[in-house]
Design a protein around this nucleic acid. Structure first.
Lengths: 146, 146
DNA sequence: TAAAATTAAATTGTGTACAACTTAATAACT
DNA sequence: AGTTATTAAGTTGTACACAATTTAATTTTA
């Protein structure tokens, strides 16, 4: 038992670590045409819904801090996908909003979820079980590491 | 019907992306004492088993390429955890072996899997379901992105 | 209301990841 | 054997991710 626990094959954490990179790799292919990365795509998903959000709000939803978001949003701004401007109500906040160009990507992105499903064929039941497990796992983790 | 599946897949990908970072964060805490990162810990896990492996073999097991491994192994070498030397049989290969100091960390690391389990309390059955799901998912993904 | 505390971004520094490319060594082939 | 192809590491450049710190604005509170 003791020796087994230090074995890689037995570790779910390693599989999640690996799965994350494989999923990112898959998205990289699918997103190549849009010229955005997976994290950038996540930002766009939110902005397509809400049009504009502060850096803080983006961070809360994506669980990323300004150290990650600021340079990423600058890159997106440079590519013309978003605009950044200080809030007038609170000069500490920066409001990020999606541009015309950023919005135009939405249509191109419509097919991505479908392509994803094609690449990860799983039963509906298995999918929801996985979803539930990950959800509760995340809750636990986010309580621990907060 | 289909739309739900699509949403779910998207959510699952995001949750895996998030879970990976939370797990890494948790490991960061646990590994702080050993002064290694999670990927470095993975290398050590392999070297504690086999004592020495080539960069290629490490890459095959961890699904990482030399672009990631070479600088990481250099850092580990600088910290005295591993040694790197060219194979004499095949000068293209570099053999990575764990040092005394690297081996000494094994004892300190024994408790880590247990601490991890304490932080992610999950039923035994749920764990093995998750393990199986991730395993088959990984197979699919690694076929697609190869 | 002036000082202290808090907050939101930005900055700095370190460490992955990975695509694309280079270099050197070995293997395969003509 | 000599050329070509393949292979293993290393290198370069880009993009996260995050800890720790800094800066500026807003709240809190004494």
């Amino acid at each position: 038992m003791k020796n087994e626990t230090l074995k890689l094959e037995n570790q779910i954490c390693f599989k999640i670590y690996t799965a994350e990179r494989e999923i990112t790799k898959l998205y990289r292919e699918l997103l190549k045409e849009l010229n955005v990365t997976y994290p950038q795509y996540l930002v766009l998903l939110l902005l397509w819904e809400k049009h504009s959000l502060t850096v803080k709000e983006l961070g809360q939803r994506l669980f990323l801090d300004s150290g990650t978001l600021t340079p990423m949003l600058k890159r997106m701004e440079m590519n013309g996908l978003v605009e950044r401007k200080r809030s007038e109500q609170d000069e500490r906040s920066v409001i990020v909003s999606v541009t015309e160009k950023g919005n135009a990507l939405k249509e191109k992105a419509e097919c991505i979820p479908n392509q994803l499903v094609d690449n990860i064929p799983m039963g509906k039941e298995e999918l929801s079980t996985l979803n539930e497990t990950l959800t509760s796992m995340l809750e636990q983790l986010q309580n621990q590491t907060k």
